[in-house]
Nucleic acid binder design. Structure first.
Lengths: 333, 333
DNA sequence: TCTTGATGCGACAAATTTTGTCGCTATAAA
DNA sequence: TTTATAGCGACAAAATTTGTCGCATCAAGA
C-alpha cells in the first residue's frame, strides 16, 4: 500500500470543492484510514506538486493552510464520459431545468457543465446542433414558480435531512405578517411548482400539516431532535391530504365514450395496465379501466369538454350531469 | 511533464467504461498529445499495476489487450461530492425517473449510483431517512409509457445527433404492418410520455412530419447526410403543429371569475408575469392575464368545471357556452 | 508447414523520485 | 518573552520508475 499514484488519487478525492476546505492533518488521518500510512510532510509535498497542474487552491491566509478544488474547475472524472452519455446528461439537464427547485438545480450544475465540456471536446460542432435539434416540451401549463427564500429553503432541507427541530418565521396564506413557529419537520413533498414541508407544530402535537416552502421567511435550525408521531407514514399522509394520487385506496371501474381524435393517444399511452379500448360503430372509442378516484383524473376528464361521455361509475356520470347544469346556469345570459 | 501520478490519472481518464475499450497503443498516442511522452511498455506496466487496485478490466482474449473500466465500478471522482450535493443528485434522480426516456435514464444511472454511495458512506443512517422523507409527486395524470424498441431509439438519437439519413421500418397508427421508409431526421421533441422524431420523408420533400418514436421498429443509419429544408425552424414547427405551446403568436387578454378555493393557488403561482387578481365581493377571484391561445390552457380551464366563469375574450366565453349546451345534450336522459 | 509481424512480458541497470527525519523559521497565542 | 504550531528546505537512503532488449506466443498468410 505504498503506491504514490493511488495515494494521490485518494487524496484528490478527499479534497472538497471551494469554499469548503481540508487540511494536511485531516488528509493524513483520512488516508491512514484507507491504508496509506505516510508522513504529513509527504502530503504537503504532494499537494504543492499537484497544485501546479490541477485547479487546486491553497488558502494560505491562515495556518494550517486550507486546500480545496477551485470552484470552477472540472476536477477529475474517470472513466471517461462517452459522447452518448454526455448527450444524455445534457438531455437530463433540459428535463430538470424547468421542474427542479432552482437552488438545487444550481448545486448540481457542475455535472452538466462537465457533460457539455465533453461534448464540446469530442464534437464541437455537433453540440450546438444538438441544442438546435432537441426540445423537451412542457406537458402541461406551467405556472410561475413562487419566490423562495434561498437560505430558508436550504435550512429546511438540512433540518429535514438531519431530523432536527426548527424555529421559523412563517406567513399564513392571505396574511401579510409572519409569526414565529416551533416546528418538527417530518418530510418534504415536491409537487409541480410547489414544495411542501410536512411537519408537526408545537401548538398541535397530534396532526401533521403541510406548509408550502415559499411561505417561510427565516429558518433557524435547533439542536434538538424532532418528535415524530408514532406510525407516521408519509405516503399515507400525502394521500389523505390529496397531495398525491398514487396511493389512493378507492378504486372504481371507469367507462366512457371518447371522441376518436381527442383520445386516440390512449391507444398508445394507456391510463394503466387494466385499460381496454373498443372502437364503436359511430367512430367513438369506448375506454374502460380500473382507476383510483382522484381529483386529477376528474380534472383530466373535464378537460375533454364535450369530447367525452362518462358511462360508469354512475356517481361520476352524475357529477358530469350536474356540471352540465351548472355550466348552463353560468352561461345562460 | 514526467510526473507518473499525473500521467496515470490522465490515462485513467482516457479509459472508457465497458463494453467500450482502449488499447495501450491508443493510450500512448493520446497521452503524447497531452504532453506525456512515454514508452508503450510503461503504459502496459501502469495498467497492470492499477488493475490490482481499481475496477479495471483487461480483455486478454485478443491481442492487443483491450482495457476498460468495469461497468459496475464507481471509478474516480474529484473533487469529493459533499453530502448536500449528493442529496440534490438523489433528488434529481427522483424527478427524472418518471419522465425521462427509460433507455436514457439507465445510461446515466452511474451518476446517481455514485451520489447514493457518497450518502451511504458519509451518513449511512440518514440516506434511508431521506428516502423515507422526500417525495416527488407527479403533477398530473401519468400515462403508461409506450413500449420503445431500444436499439431503434438509440439509433434515432444517434442519427439526429450526427445529421445522417436513415432507413426505417415504421408502423402507421392503426396499421398492423410496417413499411420501409427513407427518412431525414431533423430533430427530436420529447413531450410527456411521447417522444417524436421530426423529419422529412423521401416521398414528400416539402413538409416535415413528426413521428412518435414508439412506432419505429427497426432503424438503419445510412452514410449520407440529411437534406434540410431551407429556413427550417424547430420551434416554429412544433408551434404550428401544436406540439409546443410556448411560442404561440396569438395573444389575448384573458379574464375570468374563479371559485376562491379552486384557484387560490394562483395567488402564489401565477400564470405569468402579467396576471392580476382581485377578490370580488361575492368571494370569487377575478383573474386577468395576457395569455397565448393554446389547447393546453383551454383544457386546464375546462378542468375547473363550473368553478370558473370565463369573461374574456368573448370567443372563449362563447366556446364555454357551446360546451355547456353540448354537455346538456350528452347527459340529457 | 514455415514465415512474418505484432504483441506481451521478464529482466536489468541507470536515472529519478519518493520519503522520513531533522532543524530552522515565522507566526500567533499565552 | 515564551510556547506551540505549522510550513519548509535539506539530505541521504530506499524505492520506484523507465527505456531497452531479447525472448515467447500467437495468428494470419504464403
Amino acid at each position: 500500500m505504498s503506491n504514490p499514484t493511488l495515494r494521490q488519487i485518494s487524496m484528490l478525492e478527499l479534497i472538497p470543492r471551494a469554499p469548503l476546505k481540508t487540511y494536511s492533518r485531516e488528509l493524513k488521518e483520512k488516508l491512514s484510514e484507507r491504508g496509506y500510512e505516510v508522513d504529513e510532510r509527504t502530503i504537503q509535498r504532494d499537494l504543492v506538486s499537484l497544485e501546479r497542474v490541477l485547479p487546486l487552491i491553497c488558502d494560505d491566509r491562515d495556518k494550517p493552510y486550507g486546500w480545496s478544488w477551485a470552484e470552477t474547475g472540472l476536477g477529475i472524472q474517470a472513466p471517461a464520459m462517452d459522447p452518448v452519455e454526455a448527450l444524455t446528461l445534457s438531455l437530463a439537464e433540459q428535463y430538470l431545468e424547468p421542474i427542479m427547485p432552482n437552488a438545487s438545480f444550481k448545486r448540481i450544475g457542475y455535472f452538466f457543465k462537465r457533460a457539455n465540456s465533453v461534448l464540446k471536446e469530442t464534437s464541437p460542432r455537433l453540440i450546438s446542433r444538438w441544442r438546435d435539434r432537441v426540445r423537451v416540451l412542457p406537458e402541461m401549463l406551467r405556472f410561475k414558480n413562487p419566490i423562495l427564500n434561498k437560505s430558508a429553503e436550504q435550512a429546511l432541507y438540512k433540518a429535514t435531512f438531519e431530523g432536527l427541530q426548527i424555529k421559523a418565521l412563517y406567513r399564513k396564506r392571505g396574511d401579510n405578517y409572519s409569526s414565529l413557529r416551533h416546528i418538527h419537520p417530518l418530510g418534504l413533498v415536491m409537487k409541480g411548482s410547489i414544495n411542501y414541508l410536512i411537519c408537526m407544530m408545537n401548538e398541535d402535537k397530534e396532526n401533521p400539516r403541510y406548509l408550502p416552502l415559499h411561505r417561510f421567511e427565516r429558518v433557524e435550525i435547533l439542536d434538538e431532535k424532532i418528535c415524530e408521531p408514532k406510525d407516521f407514514d408519509l405516503d399515507e399522509f400525502t394521500h389523505v391530504n390529496n397531495l398525491s394520487f398514487e396511493y389512493s385506496k378507492k378504486l372504481y371501474t371507469f367507462k366512457a365514450l371518447f371522441d376518436f381524435t381527442a383520445a386516440a393517444h390512449l391507444m398508445e399511452t394507456p391510463l394503466n395496465g387494466t385499460q381496454k379500448i373498443k372502437k364503436q360503430p359511430d367512430g367513438r372509442l369506448l375506454v374502460s379501466a380500473r382507476m383510483t378516484d382522484t381529483l386529477q383524473f376528474e380534472q383530466w376528464l373535464k378537460g375533454f369538454g364535450s369530447d367525452v361521455e362518462i358511462l360508469a361509475p354512475i356517481e361520476l356520470r352524475a357529477k358530469f350531469k350536474k356540471l352540465a347544469k351548472d355550466l348552463i346556469k353560468k352561461y345562460d345570459d
